[in-house]
Amino acid sequence: MITFSDASVTYPGGVKALQHVDLEIGDGQMIVIVGLSGAGKSTLVRAINGLVPLTGGEVTVDGRSVTKSSAKEMRAIRSDVGMIFQGFNLVNRTSVINNVLMGRLYETPTWRTLLGRYPAEDVNFAMECLERVEIVEKAWVRASNLSGGQQQRVGIARALAQRPTIILADEPVASLDPPTSHVVMRDLKRINRELGITVIVNLHFLDLARQYGDRLIGLRDGELVFDGTGDEADEEVFESIYGRSLTADDVLGEPAPGEVA
């Protein structure tokens, strides 16, 4: 379980990215956070694994305070929280499997990392993670040689390699074309359903948000303005979250190919 209590983030320069947010996220939920760019979505997600430190209030993950943790405790929390990025954030100059093995770093002794000698069971598990996102055939290919959609699936496999209880996804489809976006969102939904991992996704397309989210959280100017199910989030709700009437740019527009989980 993740809790935000009176959580605020003010960046140097005075931008209030998060203002007095109170929020509880139970285990195994598929959460979509919606809002315009600049509404604080990225900050909210990064506050969970401490990549962005709070300037007020507290965040806890499974009872452990992220806000008050030491560097060592922070690493332990982060090892339980996988993360997927808008820009994939792979190491381009190395192989796909090495990228996935980054997910095992917390459990790997430093000397092994230095020599690049990962335990056989870790390599095996990394392969399984690649199989889950159906890209295992690219294991020994350089990450930079993959397409955007393939790179994002490697990103998902890397997060899975952590054996996380929570996966954070910061705009995971913003750099992808519509069909690929659906593939990635379906992967995330399947991970949530089959592995029971809590998945928290930032999105700005309302149709994707409604389609894949069990629960939608709306942010506007750093404040929590909506918390409810996808069915409850009609156009009126979205207009209030976005603070303006909806346009064609707010929807991905392409229906999911085939059946959706």
Binding site: N49, L51, M74, R75, A76, I77, R78, S79, V81, G82, M83, F85, N89, L90, V91, N92, N98, M102, G103, L105, Y106, T108, T110, T113, L114, G116, G155, R158, Q162, L168
Partner: peptide, 18 residues
């Protein structure tokens, strides 16, 4: 990539190496 390593809980030497 460093952000990704940090998010995975990598140590100082590990993130530099990887």
């Amino acid at each position: 990539a460093l952000e990704a390593a940090d998010a995975a809980g990598a140590g100082l030497v590990q993130r530099a190496r990887v």
